[in-house]
Design a protein around this nucleic acid. Structure first.
Lengths: 346, 346
DNA sequence: TTGAAAGCGGTACCAG
DNA sequence: CTGGTACCGCTTTCAA
């Protein structure tokens, strides 16, 4: 009943040659006469031959699959990344096995194991907010398994990395806030262990320094779970607002924290930017529709996924061990909207 | 250098038994003595044995993968669906190969082919807005390959289907609009060929009929590409607004159309709900943050993904041919917000 | 330039 | 209850 798919053996039988010849002809091996090659390829094409990938995998010890580890799929940033990865993987005939850490280090470790014995050919990873122990990743890496980091990278590991210009983006936004008259700029961010946290902090501090604004540690709040838990954002905002000298602007350092903060401020009936200006990293699709329209720093998520996938596949398919690694930094884009621009006097 | 993964043969050698015995012991086959089983399982566990999936696949002619066909990943509805599918697939040890139609029928056909010769064990599909020709799906189906439809289904095919209560959702929203004083309710929707379009239309018409409001065909606009092309939404809105008797409310029948319409109305400086009320289907994460906050009908996307994946895997693993199919309808949820509630007199 | 055959890691049939 | 072995579809070495 199933549509019979034809095998290399069928072709050999039909064309009266050996399977090895057919196999070689299909790969365009140079040791096969043009004539034979053409005959085989024609037959394959007209009979809609496709190699059995499981057989190839078994033989070649390559699954042609790559493991992806991200925070969560329903997050615009990661969704765009996936889209970029898929576009490359599709072309190069790989498939992508997605796993979500949901910012939990236990899940992350589980997922890595799962992917390992699914025998993926390589890993694409953005570490979770909770990640402290990277020994598992290091073990994989020292076993020679290709890994490419993107977004939240692990700096100590020697491999390709693809990130957005987090320092630049944070700097631009902070500078923009300062130039618009905000001097008391708070930041709500992820754990300081994360690469993106450090980098975004660096940009923030750089802008403050440039304008001679002293750093107020009370204005910097960390969310241990990267905002996965609503309360951590809520607490951060409570604390900021109840300071004797509360901030007049808020820089939210991740997509989840940005949206979470807005929702909380909205619920508290706090006016933006009247009571406090808000701007942050976000790949939300339509930040202009917010109330007020939201100033964001967008990351080139799709591009990031593409580039990371390209580099990984390149690693996987490289004949000789790769020793020099790229550190790709993609530009971010500051989009200024109402949430960070002082309204005319009311 | 690679971390040596142990095979069934290694276990056999170490334990001085045949590979067949080991294989059977690992599967807990009843023809093996408890003692042997225990010995094998212990050895496997302590030596971290995992079956080689490619070998298993080759032998069993099952890839343990399922093909997913959706509109696009960076779309909150589909992203949530994926998350639900993954949660089930992960548990049952399947992996999901994602393909995006981007609402193009050419891409859809390509993707189906691609998935076919990737030898997925079954398909999870939500057809594209452009889909007119389902012969390929029918061929797969008649070849005995399991398919489960979700969201945008194909009614003529006998298989499991998982959808939201589109009729009910559309009815609720339309009724809500009417009860809030809106009588001239326009609808912007996807092509009428789509199941979801028909169903949402049905709910809309049902509510109008119930309140004795005559149907005005000028108020119903279709987007041939489901809103993938911005102009089609823009044109629809232009036409609606330039009618001699323009509508006072807008029912947007899909996620993409909802967001697209808002963006356009926003750009045109049209007040919501003052000039026109807006409500529609959307799984946007924070519709309360919009300006104004947006009335939506939410679909249980995560649940839909879970249910569809469960049904598909059940089909795949069923010993005997399945002849009776489920038609799962999951409840939608109307969330009323400012965009459809008349403001106090201004 | 082509063919024969071993083998990748399991599974399952047939013997015993 | 256990062992021997053919085979899934393809790649690749060795021989011709």
């Amino acid at each position: 009943m199933k549509s019979e798919s034809i095998t290399i053996k069928d072709i050999a039988r039909a064309l009266n040659m050996s399977v090895s010849t057919v196999s070689r002809a299909l790969k365009g091996s140079y040791k096969i006469s043009e004539a034979t090659q053409q005959k085989v390829k024609d037959y394959a094409a007209t009979h809609n031959y496709h190699p059995n990938l499981m057989a190839q995998s078994l033989k070649n010890k390559k699954s042609r699959s790559i493991g992806l580890m991200i925070g969560s799929v329903p997050n615009n940033f990661f969704a765009e990344v996936i889209s970029g990865i898929e576009s490359i993987a599709y072309d190069k005939n790989y498939h992508v096995i997605i796993t979500q850490s949901l910012e939990s280090k236990e899940r992350e470790i589980n997922n890595l194991e799962h992917l390992t014995w699914r025998s993926v050919d390589g890993f694409l990873v953005s570490v979770s907010a909770e990640t402290t122990d990277i020994s598992q990743l290091e073990k994989l890496h020292s076993n020679g398994i290709p890994i490419v980091f993107f977004d939240r990278i692990v700096n100590t590991m020697k491999t390709h990395k693809v990130v957005a210009d987090n320092v630049g983006g944070a700097y631009e936004l902070t500078k923009h806030l300062i130039e618009n008259g905000f001097k008391k700029i708070a930041q709500i961010t992820s754990p300081l262990e994360l690469s993106i946290t450090k980098e975004r902090m660096e940009g923030y501090l750089k802008a403050l320094a440039e304008f001679n604004i002293p750093v107020n540690d009370d204005y910097i709040k960390y969310c241990p779970h990267g905002g996965m838990i609503k309360e951590e954002i809520e607490n951060a905002i409570e604390e900021l607002l109840s300071l004797p000298d509360p901030p007049d602007a808020l820089f939210t350092a991740s997509d989840r924290i940005t949206i979470g903060s807005l929702a909380i401020l909205y619920k508290k009936n706090i006016r933006i930017p009247g009571d406090i200006a808000v701007g942050g990293f976000s790949n939300f699709s339509s930040p202009e529709l917010f109330n007020p329209s939201l100033t964001t720093i967008r990351q080139p998520a799709f591009e990031m996924g593409k580039k990371a996938a390209e580099l990984l596949i390149q690693l996987i398919e490289s004949r000789r061990p790769v020793t020099s690694f790229e550190n790709v930094i993609l530009p971010t884009e500051l989009q200024v909207r109402q949430s960070t621009v002082k309204l005319p006097v009311q």
